[in-house]
Every structure is written in C-alpha cells, then in structure tokens.
Design a protein around this nucleic acid. Structure first.
Lengths: 373, 373
DNA sequence: CATTCTAGTCAGGGCTCTTGCCTAGAAAGG
DNA sequence: CCTTTCTAGGCAAGAGCCCTGACTAGAATG
C-alpha cells in the first residue's frame, strides 16, 4: 500500500518532523515562533518540543529573547541538539581529495585538503582519502566549540564524489574499456565504512556537478557535459539526476560521433586520432588541446550534444570542465547549425561543482536521518 | 513544505483512501472484510463506509454474503458507486483509431475501432477519432447494465496514444524536421475537450508501449526501440518513462549513427540512402525493408543502441515495431559485438502495446481522481 | 508603579482511532 | 423444531492528538 497507514502516531511524527525542519532552517526558535512558522497551534508545538527535548533531538539553548523585540515575556530559544550528528562530503579527483564535515544546518564544520602526486596511483589516492577524512575528524575533535565536538567525530552519513565511473550497486570505481580512468580501482565504501556510522554513498563527479547545477537553476531537464582530462556527461530528467542501471549513464567516451574526415567514430578515439591523449594514459592532454583548439574536436562534441538532444530532449546543455568552459562558445555555434539545435551554455556553478553537489546531498541525507529517527 | 500538515482531516482522508483502494482491487467487500484487508479497525472501517456512501462514492450492492461461507450473520457487500466514472483510452495510428472505456476496476466497458484510409490525411484521422469516441459513448449508453450507463458516458479523464511526436505542454502532434510524420497536425486535446469532463493526456505511442512493458516486467532502466514506418524510442529510467523537456525524448530520426560505407549520418538518412522510404512520404517502406533486409540497417540500428547504452545505461534494450521484431536477432548480434554490449530482446507485450500502456495510465489517473475527490 | 505586550500554559472540546463486548441472525446439528 | 455455533456489524469506553480561547508570568515602557 502506498499511502501511510492512518494512525495518531502518524500525526504526531508529522508534527515533530515539521518542528525539526523548522529548526534546521532557522537554527533557533522559541515555541511561539515554531508555532507561527509551522502553522501548528501553540500548545501542540510546545508539546512537540517537550517530546523532542526528552528524546535528545532538541535542546534549550539557554538563550532568551532579547529586549530588542519590545515588551513582553522573554522566550526560550530551542535548537537542534549537537548530537544529531554531522555528515561527511568528500571529493576525490586526480589533483587531490577534499573532505568536509557538514552539520544539520548546512554549516561547514571542518575541511581538509590532501593533494595527490602525478600520476595518481590507486594506493596514493586511497591514502590521501584516509588522510583527509582523518584530518577532518581531528579538526572536529580539536574544535573549541563543544557542540561540534560531540556531533562531527563520527559522521552519520558520507557522500563521496569520484572522478571516475562508479558502480551504482557497490559504490566502487569502474574501469570501462578504453575510457579514461583517472583514479584507479578505489573502494571508497570499504575505506570509509569504519569511519562513518551510517551509509557511504558514492557517485561520479559529473553527476554531483549536475546535481549542484540543478539546485542552482529552475530547469528540470538538462544534460551536463564535462570536458576535462576525462569525458563525462550527466543527465537530469524530471528534476533528478538519472544514473541508469549500473550507474554509468553518461559515460560518453564510446558514443559514436563525427570524427575527422566525416567518419563515424567513438568520441574518445577522436582525441587519439588527433594526438591529444597523454602518453601512457587514457587521459586527454588538456593543455595541448587548448593550445591547438582543433575544429574536429568541436565537431565531435557537437555530435555528442546532438545525440543528447535527440535522445533525452533537454531544455539546455550545460558545458563544464577545463577545456569545455574554454570552448563553450565554439560548441554552441556548432550546435546551433545542427538540424536539432539546443541551447548550450557554460555551467553556472564554477567553484568545486562536484563537491557542492555532494555536500548538498550529504546535508539532505543527514536531515532525513534526523527526521526519520 | 514537503510533508503534509498534520490534522485529523488528514487521517480521515487516509482512511477513506485505503477503503476506496481496497474496493478498487477486490470489487466488493463487506465492512468486516474491509477492516481485515486494510488493517484498520472495524468501527473505523464501518464509519468510513458510512461517510463514503453518504458522499456517493460507495454503494451497498444489495448482495449478501452467501451461506457458503458457513454459519454466522450475513454481511452486506459494498462496492464503488457506478458514478465514480470511467476513463477513456485511445490509440491513434495510421491504420486506425481504437477507443476504449475503462471503469475504476480496470474492466473494459466498451470498445470501438475506426479504420483510416491510406494515406492518412489529418482530417481523416480527426474524423476517425471523433467517430470512435462517439461510438464508445453510444455503446456505453446502449449498455443493458445500468451501472455502466451512468458512469461511462462522459469520461472523467482521457489518455491518448498517438503515432507521432507529441508536445508535452500542449498535447499536440509535432512535426520534427525531416522525420517521418504519419498522422499530421492533429490536436487530440481540442477534439476531446468537449467529450471528456477532465484532463486529456496525450503522449507518443512508443512511450505508452514502454509504459506497458515496464508494467509487465521488473526492470527499472531500459530503452524501448520501435522500428516500424516511423522510428521511435522511449527511455525508462528509475522506473518511469522519461519524456524530456518538450516531450520528444527518443525522437531518434536524427541521431548520428554509422551509415553505409562507414560515414557518420543521421539514422533516418540511412533509409533514404538505401531507397527504403516511401514515395511522397517520410515513412519507411517496411515491406521493402523486410524483403531486402540490408545489413546496413542492422549496423545503423546498432549505432543507435550503442548510443542508448552509452548515454542512459539501460539494463536491456527492448525492440518492437513491425520490422524491429523481425530483425531483433540480427540487431542483438550486432550489439553483442560492439565495445559496450547490452542485452537486446523483443518486446514482451505484443498485442496493442501502446493501447495497453495508455489504458493502464487511464486507469491510474481515474483512480487518483476518485481517491483525491 | 501602572500599563502594555508577548511567551508559554491550562482548560475544554472535538475528532479519530482502538479495544472489547454485545446483538442480530443465519447455518449446523441434534 | 430448538439449541448451538459462528460471523457481521454496532455500541461503549477510552486514549491520543489537535485546536480555540482564556489565563498567567514576566520584562520593557512610559
């Protein structure tokens, strides 16, 4: 049965959920403010606060409404208890690992960055991941503010962005045949399992970048094309990132497009054909590409975007990645001359887009955990 | 706010919804059976029945529990009131129009078929649509069973399948440049608006066929490739048909694939190149194609499926349509030799797949209307 | 020091759900 | 034919949740 079973308990839990969400949003509220904010009556809101304090989810901050509000009785501010916990957001890229601890308000509690030497070997990447996460834990532990100390040491949930295809079922990084594979066979779930009390959720960095883009703009159907050392693509349909069966939707290296001379050819081979792949690596040589800016690359990407436009009918195609952002205008021009033109523009979220998406999801998951009990 | 506001009214409506859904499923139940089935207590279930009878949504059938059940007091059977209404499911294809009236149990109440002469001109199609729908209404009206008469004359919702691209916003048929366009500029919403008391929902026939396929098998991510006079493709991701911004996701005629001689070329042009398009029409000549079975067509479809596999990562690609079903094995063989093989099989729903999908959606929408009040 | 004004509580009441018991009434069995 | 058995449905009591409206506590204002 889809709809929840009707019961008084359902009502009560709904009330508590409203109160908790209001506190997540406004950080601290008096009982009266809670009632006004949630639309619940004052006695009911007060009763809910009493329950939640008893359950340890909400605390009296000790703060009182300041005189500045005018006359009247002073109110007690309540907020979420420190031990509702924190979430971990991690970005793993060839340049390095970034780990952040986020509390239920969405505040950044601690952050650590660990560079990775070139070329990135799987063991180095795993080691950097461990160092970054442990450093965040230490930072939280050393924090002066007691409220953070209790909450962040062992995150309740972790969300990881990785710059390679990720298996949707296992969370492991996946080497697809002949496609750029930047990090190697990392298993973030295994590494983090002991350091997180709950779920470790891993996904591809482009999917997270698309998630950040989605949150930043009111478009329900778009594609995010990521053009950097690796090639990536994320699909947002009906307002959600669509990952496909195994989670490798948008792994476009093998998409057949127009190659040099008009031949049909997989996208990744275009770069090989033009001598734009790094020696001893499947990665694209971005510096060389930006120096030469070959028209063939623009045409090939145009073929990719035409395929996206045809198959998923996006409102707009967002282009990101180091060389993607540089060539976005040439690509848009190429697409506008195709038989099915579609709007093309550069990504709106420019700073750490993948981490931004992972962070937003980590916050969302943490809040769900708190509300669900 | 996402979660519903807690209130006593919410509980009551949830109870009523449970009762209504149980009646939709089991057709007739006594109060005691309703309580057992929904898990709600007897007095509450009884009270809900009283409310729903008063609201006119439920009626005492007059039937009583037969002695066959053993001793004990006889119970009264309740079922949905006849005037909860019916839904209309319509399929518009070049061969003709089929219209069906469906009641809230999912029973076929009436059905009419109207052929269309070749070639199908827009006016003929619209006329056939009108005739079919009116004939269904007359059949319902003439029905001996009073219960159907009251319910089906003016459907509460209509779901239409059309064998051309459909604009998601307006429900109109959409001519895409140079793609096969079989029916012409029909406006089913305009035609049916006066004949239906509620919404008229139109979508492409391949999307509906995919919907029927989805209901028939436990797969959340697949693509449905439809190969007939027109070329179509539907994408099911995370358990739902994804239509894209305008609703023309999967209009694959212009997808770039491998053409004769290895040249990159839009899929539809492959058929022109091979002389497989009908004279004075954008449609594919299916008989000729099935006679010649050119290897180039299999290769071109293989390119389409490779693009689908790459971009949306389906668990399986389902092939339907007149020549698709005949060539499915050759296509599967071609795909299995590609660098990203994916399972390919023929569609499971063979009889009127589009109508089956539209019918299921019509039923779903009708039930939602009844439950929502 | 009286007034004003707000946070929080209390009292009363309505509604929904549940449990447990009772009644109606037909079939089964002697 | 009468008693027993057994189930559908109703009734009564009670608990829980939410709401309205009134009241109390207590600080700032003037």
């Amino acid at each position: 049965m889809d709809p929840a079973k009707p019961s008084q308990e359902l009502l009560r839990s709904l009330t508590d959920e409203h109160v908790l969400r209001a506190l997540m949003r406004y950080r601290r509220l008096t009982r009266a403010e809670l009632a006004a904010e949630t639309g619940i009556s004052k006695p009911t809101a007060g009763e809910s606060v009493r329950r939640l304090v008893e359950a340890g989810l909400v605390v009296d901050t000790g703060q009182r409404t300041p005189g500045g509000r005018g006359r009247g009785r002073v109110g007690s501010y309540y907020s979420l208890a420190p031990d509702v916990g924190a979430a971990l957001a991690v970005s793993i890229a060839p340049e390095g690992v970034v780990a952040e601890s986020i509390n239920a308000y969405g505040d950044l509690v601690a952050r650590a960055e660990e560079p990775i030497g070139r070329p990135a070997r799987p063991d180095d990447v795993t080691a950097a991941l461990v160092r970054a996460v442990d450093q965040v834990r230490d930072l939280v532990e050393a924090s002066q503010e007691a409220e953070f100390r209790a909450s962040g040491i062992r995150p309740r949930v972790a969300v990881v962005s990785a710059a390679d295809p990720v298996d949707r079922g296992t969370g492991r990084l996946l080497q697809l045949p002949d496609a750029p594979f930047l990090l190697g066979e990392i298993d973030p779930v295994g590494v983090l399992a002991g350091r997180v009390s709950g779920v470790v959720h891993v996904d591809n960095d482009v999917n997270w970048a698309a998630e950040a883009e989605r949150a930043a703009m009111p478009v329900d159907d778009f594609a995010y094309v990521y053009l950097d050392e690796g090639l990536g693509c994320a699909i947002v349909s009906d307002g959600e990132v669509r990952r496909g069966r195994r989670g490798v939707a948008g792994e476009v290296a093998h998409l057949i497009t127009v190659g040099p001379g008009g031949w049909a050819m997989p996208l990744i081979e275009v770069f090989g054909e033009l001598g734009l792949r790094r020696r001893n690596s499947t990665a694209i040589d971005v510096d060389l590409l930006l120096e030469k800016r070959p028209a063939e690359v623009v045409v090939a990407v145009g073929g990719l975007i035409a395929a996206l436009a045809t198959l998923i009918d996006p409102e707009v195609v967002v282009v990101g990645g180091r060389w993607g952002t540089h060539l976005v205008e040439a690509i848009a021009g190429e697409v506008s001359r195709s038989p099915r033109p579609v709007r093309v523009r550069a990504a709106a979220v420019e700073f750490e887009p993948s981490l931004a998406g992972a962070r937003a999801d980590a916050l969302h998951r943490l809040r769900e955990l708190i509300v669900a009990r």
